[in-house]
Design a protein around this nucleic acid. Sequence first.
DNA 1: TAGATTGTTAATCGATTAACAATC
DNA 2: TAGATTGTTAATCGATTAACAATC
Lengths: 237, 237
Amino acid sequence: MVIGMNLSNSSRVNRPEVPPIPQPSLKRLPQYHHYLVDIEAKGVTRISCSAIGRDLGCVPVQVRKDLQYTGIIGKPKTGYSVSELIQAIEQFLGWNNVNEAFLVGVGNLGTALLGHERFSKFGLRIVAAFDTDPSKVGQWVHQKAVLPLDKLADLAPRMSILLGIITTPAEAAQAVADEMVKGGIQAIWNFAPVKLKVPEGVIVHNEDLYSTLASLSWKLARRLRAPMQEKQEKEAV
Amino acid sequence: MVIGMNLSNSSRVNRPEVPPIPQPSLKRLPQYHHYLVDIEAKGVTRISCSAIGRDLGCVPVQVRKDLQYTGIIGKPKTGYSVSELIQAIEQFLGWNNVNEAFLVGVGNLGTALLGHERFSKFGLRIVAAFDTDPSKVGQWVHQKAVLPLDKLADLAPRMSILLGIITTPAEAAQAVADEMVKGGIQAIWNFAPVKLKVPEGVIVHNEDLYSTLASLSWKLARRLRAPMQEKQEKEAV
DNA sequence: TAGATTGTTAATCGATTAACAATC
DNA sequence: TAGATTGTTAATCGATTAACAATC
C-alpha cells in the first residue's frame, strides 16, 4: 500500500489513463500478428479488416477495433500496411524489449518451456531454472542452469528479473510464488492449477490446462449424451 | 449440414435445451473442484459459497451461480456437502468416463503432456503419440508408442478415439487437424498458435500460450512505462 | 425465533455487433 | 465521381453483481 499512489491518482480527475484495452482484444492481438507475419512472407503488403476477419473467422469491425488499440491508422479504401501493422502490434505488446525470466519447476512441462526457442521471438528469454530436487540442481537443461530454489530471491534483483514462470506441482506453487515476490518479481506466469495469493500489484496470469480440458470434456460428453441438442457454439476458445 | 437437424430443432419451439452454461463458468468449475478436494482432505465436510469465494477471491453469488449449473442443491444456513459437490462437478464435467486421446507432435511440449500423469484424474488418457519424424517414430515416450502420422486416420476409428491433441509447430498443425478429422475425431485440443479450419461440428479449443504471454508482457511493459497510471485490474486470467 | 445461507429476479457493466458518417 | 474501407457512435447481447425472497 503506497500512500502516494492514491494521491497522485485522485489529484487529477478524469485523467486520460493508459488505453484500457479489453482482455479479449489483448489476447487476439498475437493471433493477428501471427497471421500478418504469415501473409507478409507470401508477399502481401496491404490488408483490410474484412480480409483478416474472413481468414481468421471473426467480424471485420472487431478486427478494426482490436487493431485500433495499437494506435495504428489505416487508409480508407486501401486498408493497412502489413508491415506497419506488424510493427505496431509488436511495439504495443512490448515484444521489442526482451523480458528476462526465471522458471521454477524443472519437470516435464518446465523442461518443455525451457526448450521452447520460439519464445525469444515474443520478447521472452528464460535465463535460469530453479528446483528443489537435489538430483536436478546443478544440471543443465536446454543450455540453462538449474539452480537451487533458495537462491532465487537473492539472484532476481541482482539480475533485474521481473518475470517468473511456475511449472511446479500445485502443492509447491504458493511457496514458489512467495519466493518470487521476495525477490521483487512483478509478474508471474503460473502453470500450476492453484489460485496464488500475492501482494497487491503483482501480476499473475494462470495457464490452467485443466480449465480448457474441462470445457472440452464437457462438450464432448454432452455431444455423446444428446447429439442433437447442441447449441450452435460461437467459436473455439 | 444435416437437413434433419434443423427440422428436429425447430419442430419444437422453446425446447429446454441442455443447460447453456457460460464459458467462464465452465472454466471456473475445475478450480472449485481443486479447492474442494483440498479442503475435503483437511476434513471439511460442508462449505458455503461465501467461504469458497473468500478463499478463491470471487464474490459468493458468482460461486453459487456457477455451482448451480452442475445441478447441485444446497441447504440454506448450512451450505453444500463437500463430497456431493465434488461428485456433482466431476459428473457434470464428464470426468468419470475416460476420454482416450491421440497426441500428435512429440516435441518438448508433446513429451511433457505424454508424461503428465495427473490428466488421468480428469478423465484424459493419452493412448498413443504420432509424429512424422522418422527418428521419433518407433520410440516409446513415457510408455507410449510413437507411431507414424499416416496411421492416425486409420487407427482412430478402430480404437474409437474422439479426442486429438496437437502439439506440433504451427506450420504442421492444419495438416494434422485434417488427418484427425479424416479419422473421425470430434474434439481437438490445439497447442499450435494457428486458427484451425475444421468442418462444422468438430470442437476445437486452443491453448495459445502466446496470448497469455501477450497479456503479461503488455502489462509489464505498461508498468515500466507508467507505473502510476495502472488501473486496478480485476483479477488474474 | 433469529440469523445465515441458498435461490432467483432485476440492475449493471463490459464486450460485441450494427449502423452510419468520413475519407481516400 | 462511385465505391470500398476506415473510424465512430449507438444498440445489443451476455456475464456479473446487487437486491431480495425463501428456507432451514
